[in-house]
């Protein structure tokens, strides 16, 4: 079923989304990938505050290509989420409610999602030009020195994503592969 969802994601919406739902996201999300996650992790180890308040927010695992003049952003598709698995459970426990990426997650991440009522969406990997059209504005809000890996605040309109893991831990990758597997 296709759904339109406002971002930041409300707790109610997070709990209403089911594995396999095709969803269009509109509103504010943040980007962070490997290097930004490592820095946030190190900040937490030192007892420092995170550069953004992640409570109730969604992180898009994405590092864009540079924007051409007059455009908000360059190509902007998802990166592989599993590289953030080391860091995700702690962020989920701090209130992160949504993640957008591609690829499998560990059981530790799923457990943290179940514990906190969070959702993992997949955007189509390798569709960066198409997805960039759904990004209205982009602003670097932290770790500017990381270039493409800086934390960005994005305004998106009808960003097409699929619920891959819902708040119950059900995983579309596992379910759908079973459905189409031939022996």
């Amino acid at each position: 079923m296709d759904k339109k969802i406002s971002m930041p994601l409300s707790k109610e919406d997070a709990l209403s989304l089911n594995c396999g739902d095709y969803v269009y996201l509109t509103g504010t999300i943040y980007t962070a990938r490997d290097a930004a996650h490592k820095r946030m992790y190190e900040a937490l180890r030192k007892g420092e505050a995170l550069p953004i308040d992640i409570k109730g927010q969604t992180i898009y695992y994405m590092g864009p290509s540079p924007a051409r003049e007059g455009r908000p952003i360059g190509s902007a598709g998802p990166t592989t989420a599993s590289r953030m698995d080391k860091y995700a459970p702690e962020l989920l426990d701090l209130g992160l409610i949504g993640m957008i990426g591609k690829g499998k997650r560990t059981q530790e991440v799923k457990d943290a999602m179940i514990r906190n009522g969070a959702v993992y969406f997949a955007a189509v990997g390798g569709a960066g030009a198409l997805l960039s059209k759904c990004i209205i504005s982009s602003e670097v809000v932290a770790y500017d020195d990381l270039g493409t890996e800086a934390i960005r605040k994005l305004e998106v309109k009808d960003l097409p994503v699929i619920v891959v893991i819902d708040h119950t831990g059900k995983d579309l990758y596992i379910e759908s592969q079973k459905q189409y597997r031939e022996e």
Binding site: V124, V164, S176, Q177, Y180
Partner: peptide, 12 residues
């Protein structure tokens, strides 16, 4: 025949 499919979302 693996069932992985486009985007890993199931298919041939």
């Amino acid at each position: 025949k693996s069932g992985i499919g486009p985007g890993g979302l199931g298919g041939r």
